[in-house]
Simulated assay, not measured.
Amino acid sequence: MAVMSRHERPTLVQAMIRGLRGRCPHCERGRLYWKYLKVEPRCQVCGHDIAQYPADDGPAYFTILIVGHLLVAPLLLFPIIWQAPAAVMLPATLIPLAAATLALLPRVKGAFIGLLYALKVKEQDAHLHTADFVD
């Protein structure tokens, strides 16, 4: 990867990949999380305010979308899912699906924060995205 100057802003893809790796989308050197899904308020390396990007429900939605389409839908094509006893198939499918969801969620959230960083969407811009209609 090319070394970026201090004032050069990463591209959208670079910022998303940095977030996907759990790194600061601004500098790539600092950690994005201090716990499982708790975002660092500020990057420990560059001091960038990471908490200003409103990830909210977007990462959960995309994680469910990915797990549902890539894991659940193909499973339904196999007859064993329908023929085996429910007491066997429920734990055999739900446990790996829950594990995949929990493993994927921080990565999707990181990529989502990288996307918000690249698009310059911040928490204080929320009033621009909501419409207050007055009759």
Score class of each variant (00 low, 15 high):
residue 17 I to E: 13
residue 18 R to F: 06
residue 18 R to W: 06
residue 20 L to I: 03
residue 20 L to Y: 04
residue 20 L to C: 12
residue 20 L to D: 04
residue 21 R to K: 15
residue 22 G to S: 10
residue 23 R to G: 02
residue 23 R to T: 02
residue 25 P to L: 09
residue 25 P to I: 05
residue 26 H to F: 03
residue 27 C to K: 06
residue 27 C to Q: 03
residue 29 R to V: 13
residue 32 L to R: 01
residue 33 Y to D: 10
residue 34 W to Q: 13
residue 34 W to G: 06
residue 34 W to I: 08
residue 36 Y to I: 01
residue 39 V to Q: 05
residue 39 V to T: 07
residue 40 E to D: 04
residue 40 E to G: 01
residue 42 R to D: 14
residue 42 R to Y: 11
residue 42 R to K: 12
residue 43 C to R: 08
residue 43 C to F: 09
residue 44 Q to P: 10
residue 45 V to T: 12
residue 46 C to K: 08
residue 48 H to S: 05
residue 48 H to R: 10
residue 50 I to V: 08
residue 50 I to T: 05
residue 50 I to G: 00
residue 50 I to K: 06
residue 51 A to N: 03
residue 51 A to R: 06
residue 51 A to P: 01
residue 51 A to Y: 04
residue 54 P to R: 09
residue 55 A to L: 08
residue 55 A to N: 04
residue 55 A to C: 01
residue 56 D to C: 01
residue 56 D to W: 07
residue 57 D to K: 01
residue 58 G to F: 11
residue 60 A to R: 01
residue 62 F to P: 03
residue 62 F to R: 01
residue 63 T to E: 03
residue 63 T to I: 05
residue 64 I to A: 08
residue 64 I to E: 04
residue 64 I to T: 14
residue 65 L to F: 11
residue 66 I to N: 00
residue 66 I to D: 01
residue 67 V to Y: 00
residue 68 G to A: 09
residue 70 L to P: 00
residue 70 L to M: 07
residue 73 A to W: 08
residue 73 A to G: 08
residue 74 P to D: 07
residue 75 L to G: 12
residue 75 L to S: 12
residue 75 L to N: 04
residue 75 L to A: 05
residue 78 F to T: 08
residue 78 F to E: 13
residue 78 F to V: 11
residue 78 F to P: 02
residue 80 I to D: 15
residue 82 W to R: 09
residue 84 A to W: 14
residue 85 P to M: 00
residue 89 M to N: 05
residue 89 M to V: 11
residue 91 P to K: 07
residue 92 A to L: 10
residue 93 T to A: 11
residue 94 L to E: 09
residue 95 I to L: 11
residue 95 I to Y: 14
residue 95 I to P: 02
residue 95 I to D: 07
residue 95 I to H: 02
residue 98 A to T: 03
residue 99 A to V: 13
residue 99 A to I: 12
residue 102 L to P: 04
residue 103 A to W: 14
residue 103 A to Y: 07
residue 103 A to I: 08
residue 104 L to F: 02
residue 105 L to C: 11
residue 105 L to R: 02
residue 106 P to G: 09
residue 106 P to T: 03
residue 108 V to R: 01
residue 113 I to Q: 04
residue 115 L to G: 12
residue 118 A to Y: 03
residue 118 A to R: 02
residue 119 L to Q: 03
residue 120 K to R: 13
residue 122 K to E: 15
residue 124 Q to M: 08
residue 125 D to T: 08
residue 126 A to I: 11
residue 127 H to Y: 13
residue 129 H to P: 00
residue 131 A to S: 15
residue 132 D to K: 15
residue 133 F to M: 14
residue 133 F to K: 12
residue 133 F to Y: 15
residue 133 F to Q: 15
residue 134 V to T: 10
residue 134 V to E: 15
